[in-house]
């Protein structure tokens, strides 16, 4: 099935929405250019640690970060976007990825464990979904702030993830579960793994759950609706992973592949924002090149 426009909100691109989209695109471009350099540097074997790129999924992290302020995030292994969108130091992230002790985790684990208390982001140990019950436990004792817990469509199948929905519902936790649904667990598509939908399961536990595509405005306005209620909610976001599961390589684009980045870019260009789009991309391209080159020299 093609999920490119799945439950997309049909909104008019008025001035307000264009300005919002520009803000989101700015973050998307920032994450994307960081990741593209990471990809190239890894491809050139400048470093060999574990690296999970989030290229293709940038709109999720950019939009969530803009929609909810002052939250706590628990990410999974593919967490660069969460960290960067929430204001984490890109320099520290490069250092972590290339194994320097000035990295977010002193060079402990490549992509998964990114931790930065300052921006309220907790790390992932590497076992998929294991952050989900931990995020719920955190939320239980920190109800004043929204806890955002990201996980993948593969992790969604873990027993303890499903059990967490029950706990979150019973305790009425102030938690937002976000499933980055790229329809893949490593390379195994969802249809080969399960026959149920995550939203149906979450709903049956009494959790407010929606299933949408990764269109930024659709994510933004849905979050705005949910955000105020301070009750557990789940957003399953359909997206496309553009690059390899781990390491540097490009996946073959499937029949229903879409690049949300390119779609958003095109929308803005069609709305006379070509100049903004180009200067944003150029800015981040130059910045990322300089950053990576400088940090790689430390190796």
């Amino acid at each position: 099935m093609n999920f490119q426009n799945y439950n997309i909100l049909k909104l008019s691109y008025n001035q307000k929405n264009i300005e919002l989209l520009k803000k989101i695109f700015f973050k998307m471009s920032y994450i994307r250019q960081f990741e593209l350099r990471a990809y190239e540097s890894r491809l050139e074997k400048k470093f060999e640690t574990l690296i999970y790129l989030c290229l293709g999924q940038e709109s999720i992290y950019s939009t969530v970060a803009l929609s909810i302020k002052n939250s706590i995030s628990f990410g999974q292994h593919r967490g660069h976007g969460i960290y960067l969108a929430n204001g984490g130091s890109p320099k520290k992230l490069v250092d972590e990825l290339i194994g320097l002790n000035t990295g977010t985790n002193k060079g402990m684990g490549g992509s998964p464990p990114i931790f930065d208390k300052k921006i309220g982001m907790y790390g992932h140990v590497g076992l998929i979904g294991d952050q989900v019950p931990v995020a719920a436990g955190y939320s239980l004792v920190n109800k004043s702030k929204k806890t955002i817990c990201y996980f993948g469509d593969g992790a969604a199948e873990e027993d303890y993830v499903l059990a967490t929905f029950g706990f979150a519902s019973q305790k009425k936790l102030n938690i937002l579960f976000i499933c980055d649904d790229n329809d893949l667990s490593v390379l195994t598509p969802t249809k080969d793994r399960r026959s149920w939908k995550l939203v149906d399961v979450a709903k049956s536990f009494g959790i407010n759950a929606i299933d949408i595509t990764d269109d930024p405005l659709t994510i933004y306005y849905n979050i705005k609706k949910i955000e105020k209620k301070n009750v557990p909610a789940l957003i399953n976001i359909r997206t496309c992973r553009e690059y390899w599961h781990e390491g540097a390589g490009k996946d073959k684009e499937g029949k229903y592949f879409w690049s949300r980045y390119k779609i958003v870019k095109k929308i803005l260009e069609n709305k006379n924002q070509e100049k903004f789009v180009n200067s944003t991309e150029m800015l981040h391209k130059k910045w990322s090149k300089k950053l990576w080159e400088k940090q790689l020299q430390k190796l």
Binding site: E157, E158, D159, Y160, S185, L187, T188, D192, R193, R194
Partner: peptide, 27 residues
């Protein structure tokens, strides 16, 4: 992830018969 990911470093026969793919349920 038995079939899609290189048949577990080529230790699993590349066939459907007898291969049971699990969901990501680790308990």
């Amino acid at each position: 992830c038995l079939s899609a990911v290189g048949w577990v470093q080529n230790t699993v026969p590349a066939q459907k018969k007898g291969i049971i793919e699990f969901p990501m349920t680790d308990v």
